[in-house]
């Protein structure tokens, strides 16, 4: 009996505040805009009994989804979100891997401190970390002043409000998510394997390519998913650093909802985004499960 109550409380909470809201989104994505508030039809009329339920399902349609395919704004937004998320994941990997490698090569007594230094930014506000780049990247910002002063450039660079600024923002905020899983696999790596490869005639570079990289693959894959999945639906970074020219689906959803007040279309955008996300999420979970089984 006590066990039942213990299960019921968090279960009911999640059902009411996670699953039900999500079903509402799916339902509204199949509804039409109505002029009255709340702006959508049909309403489920349970008082009318079975006829009400039947009526409700008959009025649902895929109009909003056909609308998404007819307006190329949405296509371009999904594609450019995928492109931006992919490019920033690769950039994060290129910057994060050497850092993780260096951490794993450091003296053991230094490692906890290095790890804390990598985790620490995660505890400071995400919004502030993104904001800190606005003062650096802007037309007369710190970076341009510095480059002009050293004479590397003669005209200020335009970085702010371009896709480049979005890449910088994503790489910066998600770098710890890439470093930590790679570091975890590299730390456990058996050095004697690399020594054996070198003894058998591998150069240091080819030992790295043929032994270290393949053995750290689980960490690389986990890190890439941990960056790619949140980057795809990102809202704050493109809206602060990307300007009006950068299309990302999280921003489109926000504007559709708050500026255009078109709830059904915003819900349809959300459903499609989730359908796109399911593929990487399932792949990620499979990778995690494989690692867990390999670890046993």
């Amino acid at each position: 009996m006590r066990r039942l109550i213990l299960i019921l409380v968090p279960y009911a909470w999640l059902l009411a505040l996670f699953l039900v809201p999500f079903l509402i989104v799916v339902k509204i994505s199949l509804s039409d805009v109505a002029l009255a508030r709340p702006p959508y039809l049909p309403q489920l009329d349970l008082a009318a009994g079975w006829a009400g339920v039947k009526d409700f399902f008959q009025q649902l349609d895929f109009e909003n989804f056909t609308f998404l395919t007819s307006d190329d704004l949405y296509w371009r937004a999904y594609l450019s979100s995928l492109r931006i998320a992919l490019i920033s994941t690769v950039l994060t990997l290129l910057i994060g891997y050497p850092v993780a490698y260096a951490m794993a090569s450091a003296q053991p007594e230094w490692r906890p401190t290095l790890m804390m230094l990598v985790i620490l930014p995660f505890w400071t506000s995400f919004l502030i970390r993104v904001y800190s780049w606005m003062g650096i990247l802007s037309q007369n910002g710190v970076l341009n002043s510095f480059l002009l002063w050293t004479g590397v450039i003669s005209e200020p660079l335009t970085i702010m409000n371009t896709e480049i600024a979005v890449y910088v923002g994503i790489v910066y905020t998600y770098l710890p998510f890439m470093i930590l899983p790679i570091y975890a696999t590299l730390e456990k790596l058996d050095v004697s394997l690399i020594e054996a490869a070198e003894d058998l005639g591998c150069s240091r570079a080819s030992a790295f390519w043929l032994v270290t990289i393949p053995l750290s693959k689980p960490g690389i894959i986990a890190g890439c998913f941990l960056v790619f999945i949140p980057a795809l639906g990102e809202f704050v970074i493109p809206s602060l650093l990307g300007g009006s020219g950068t299309l990302m689906i999280g921003k489109v959803l926000w504007e559709e909802f708050f500026n255009n007040r078109d709830w059904p279309v915003a819900s349809a955008v959300a459903v499609v985004l989730l359908l796109i996300l399911i593929i990487p999420i399932v792949l990620f979970q499979r990778n995690e499960q494989k690692n867990r089984e390999a670890g046993k």
Partner: peptide
């Protein structure tokens, strides 16, 4: 893994600077 080369030192310094400089400037 116990080999602290010059390259490692550079990438560690660069990585930590990248993480902390923007906040320091702020």
């Amino acid at each position: 893994m116990r080999r602290m080369s010059g390259f490692n030192l550079v990438s560690l310094t660069f990585g930590l600077a990248f993480l902390y400089l923007p906040m320091l400037i702020l």
